[in-house]
């Protein structure tokens, strides 16, 4: 079941609905066999982009190419793309097996052969022996697996997934993230995955394209996107980000920062105890305005004299004193200079 995976090239793609621009000159290159995630809030254009790739949204301008072949105007049924939909979109009037056999029957495959391949696909998503069941008799997680089996059974050249896990509860969702990634690695098929969950994107992807307002804001590996966001939107969307003009940071190392640039420090990169040489760290000081215990960490809200609010995440195993901190107490927190990231955009 190893389909030859193909690269995807998107150039100058544009789509608007009235005055609302859903896709604004989007360009993207995805290499063969890559797992790329489109990440963004609702209305960012990520689903529109996916649906344009699948052939359900007709772009106004631009080009889509799969494996070097222009598919921009090819109807969806001729694209040979496996699509997994948010609400599974299984055929409720067919059994599990009939759902999975469906794409094979359309391709005129003999009955016995189709049955064999469908059963193999079901086994691959751990649903061996479920073929005769009705869709209505399956749980949400099982339905998602049937949808996966149906999308891979005809060995598509490209897989598109539109928030496939959003309807599942947290534990199952996290489990399925690894399973889908493993399925991708086994099949090696080029995959574009849409989600609004940054943790899901970080967990699963080779690369993440962060989208907002119909544009790709930044594209890179999970670590690049998380640690080196280009702008405030990406920084804040990917995790708890403290953003302040560099001039407002204290400590020896702060002096070397260009004062007008915006500096970003992730909440978990602060510490309450100074570590390392003083010339290699920045500091903040202020009043504890609120705190919360979250199991693996403590969240501390610190308000500086300048009026900046900093969110500090102190790992529970390094937060011996946090339980005793009183609201209103004066705090000093430290972050290693390496963890200070300057955003591309200027000071606001």
């Amino acid at each position: 079941m190893s389909a030859a995976s193909l690269p995807i090239t998107i150039t100058g793609l544009r789509k608007s609905y009235g005055h609302y621009v859903a896709l604004d000159d989007v360009g993207l290159d995805i290499s063969a066999g890559e797992f790329l995630t489109l990440l963004g809030p609702s209305g960012s254009g990520k689903t529109t982009l996916l649906m344009a790739l699948a052939g359900f949204v007709r772009p106004e301008m631009g080009m889509l190419a799969i494996g070097g072949r222009d598919v921009t105007r090819l109807p969806p049924n001729k694209r040979d793309i496996g699509v997994v939909f948010q609400n599974y979109a299984l055929f409720p009037h067919m059994s599990v097996l009939a759902n999975v056999e469906y794409p094979l029957k359309l391709r005129g495959m003999p009955k016995a052969e189709a049955r064999g391949l469908a059963e193999t696909a079901l086994a691959r998503v751990k649903l061996f022996g479920y073929g005769a069941r009705d869709i209505a008799a399956l749980s949400g997680g099982q339905r998602q697996r049937v949808a996966l089996a149906r999308a891979i059974v005809f060995e598509p050249r490209v897989m598109l997934m539109d928030e496939p896990l959003s309807a599942l509860d947290k534990n199952l969702r996290e489990h399925m993230q690894f399973e889908i990634r493993k399925l991708h690695d086994d099949l090696g098929v080029t995959t574009i995955y849409v989600t609004h969950d940054q943790r899901e994107a970080l967990t699963m992807s080779d690369r993440i394209a962060v989208m907002d307002a119909g544009r790709i804001q930044q594209i890179g590996t999970p670590r690049e996107i998380y640690r080196r966001p280009m702008n405030r939107f990406v920084a804040e969307f990917m995790g708890e980000a403290n953003i302040t003009p560099a001039s407002r940071l204290e400590g020896q190392a702060a002096a070397s920062l260009p004062p007008t640039r915006l500096a970003m420090i992730r909440a978990e990169n602060f510490e309450l105890d100074p570590a390392g040489p003083a010339r290699e760290r920045v500091e903040i000081s202020g009043r504890l305005s609120s705190k919360a215990f979250r199991g693996e960490n403590w969240l501390l809200n610190v308000e500086t004299l300048a009026g900046d609010h900093f969110m500090l995440s102190i790992a529970a195993n390094r937060a011996a004193g946090c339980a005793d901190l009183e609201t209103g107490a004066q705090l000093r927190a430290y972050a290693a200079f390496d963890h200070v990231h300057l955003l591309e955009e200027g000071s606001s």
Binding site: I81, Q86, N87, A89, L90, F91, Y102, P103, L106, A151
Partner: peptide, 22 residues
Amino acid sequence: DGNVVRAAASLGAGFWRCVATV
């Protein structure tokens, strides 16, 4: 569900097949 019809198309069903089977 519109997605069910779209799913059929993505799996290879043209208009008439989609009408007949879904």
